[in-house]
Computed example of a mutant assay.
Amino acid sequence: MAAAAPTSHGKSRSLYPGWFFLPAAVIYAVLFLAPTLSSFYYSLTRWTLFNATFIGLDNFVQFFREPFLVQGLINTVVYAVITSGLKVVLGMALAMLLTSNIIARGYLRSVVFFPVLVSTVGVGITFTVLMHPTQGMINEGLALLGIKGPGWLVDPKLALFSVALVDVWKGVGLATVIYIAGLVAIPKDYYEAARIDGAGPWQNFLYVTLPLSRPATATVITLSFIGGLRTFDLIWAMTKGGPGFASDTVASVIYKQYQAGFYGLSTAGNVVLFILIGILVVPITMFLNRKQGHE
């Protein structure tokens, strides 16, 4: 690897000329900056594939007048909090298990990570069948135990949480891999020093593992929270936002407007979602990074 050359001010300077970064900058501008700026413009228009009429903020005003938007906003935040929280807890627990001396550790790691590789739509269709209120295997299994299974996807009080649990099942493997990378990077000297001081398993976790795995925790929280706020495919595959609007998220509301032919309105919704993610995720990321920097 090429090392960085020191400058007269004592700071390192890259040996690579600045134009080496030009291809990446062009790709970033074409695939991200241009569509983003275009979205901001088209959110202020009433557009079709052939023309666009500037109408100012009318799309945003109409979007926020949608009767089910408030429910969608609440559902989106609740979904993101549930999925990210469970992925942190379960990911840490599984990572600790899969870094211990257990039999078939490599095989179990593959099993845990496998759902991440499966199509989200395929997972949604599969669990829709499994969670059928009368013929699904889950409720049939509960019936054998004398328990009447709930309407996982047809009960307005359970639909959103049911989809969230499926999301956790599918995504916890990635969180586990991130935590495994964080745990194996912790120097063994810390655990040896804690053992000499008489620390037990709980003290090791509380005062060594948990603080030193904070970078992994920050990564899992950030990725999971962003994914939860953007969720659409699993919701659409399992409930299509139903029953009623019980499991609608901002993304599904946007898609329904697009299906109805309100392209400008749906583009405004995308801008709202973009701003919502920024408002919620940026402070969380700054807080987690500040905590890391104070260690």
Rank of each mutant, 00 (worst) to 15 (best):
G122F: 03
A251D: 05
A5I: 15
G173T: 09
F232K: 07
G149M: 12
K188I: 15
I196Q: 03
G122W: 07
Q292W: 11
W47A: 00
M1W: 12
A52M: 09
S12E: 15
Y107S: 12
A185Y: 11
T76L: 07
I186P: 09
A216K: 00
A194K: 12
S162F: 04
V81Y: 05
G122C: 02
A24C: 07
V154D: 10
V166N: 04
N139K: 04
L130H: 03
Q203Y: 09
P187I: 05
F274G: 08
I27C: 04
P6N: 13
G171F: 03
Q259A: 12
T126N: 07
I55M: 12
G141I: 10
L130D: 08
D167W: 00
L108F: 13
T7H: 10
T99P: 06
W152D: 06
S8E: 14
A260D: 11
P17H: 08
L22T: 15
S8H: 11
L37A: 14
T36G: 14
T222N: 04
V208N: 10
F114C: 06
V271A: 09
P243T: 04
N51M: 09
L49E: 03
S38W: 14
G91W: 00
V177Q: 00
V208R: 08
T285V: 15
A194Y: 12
Y190Q: 03
L144E: 10
E140H: 12
T231Y: 02
N51V: 05
G122L: 06
S38Y: 14
T285Y: 15
Y258N: 11
N270G: 15
W152H: 09
I284F: 00
F50G: 05
A185P: 08
K188R: 15
A237S: 15
I147K: 02
Q292V: 09
P150S: 10
S224C: 08
G182H: 01
A25Q: 11
G136P: 00
V123N: 02
E66A: 14
L280I: 09
G149R: 05
L160N: 08
V88Q: 10
V26Q: 13
T134H: 12
A181G: 12
T128R: 10
I180C: 07
D167S: 02
W47C: 03
G293N: 05
I125D: 00
F232C: 01
I125W: 03
F127R: 02
S84G: 02
G171W: 02
Y258M: 13
R105L: 11
F40P: 01
I275L: 14
A175F: 06
F205R: 10
A25T: 08
W236C: 02
I284T: 09
L144F: 07
R230I: 10
I284H: 03
V172C: 05
Q135C: 02
Y28H: 13
R109C: 04
P283M: 09
F60I: 02
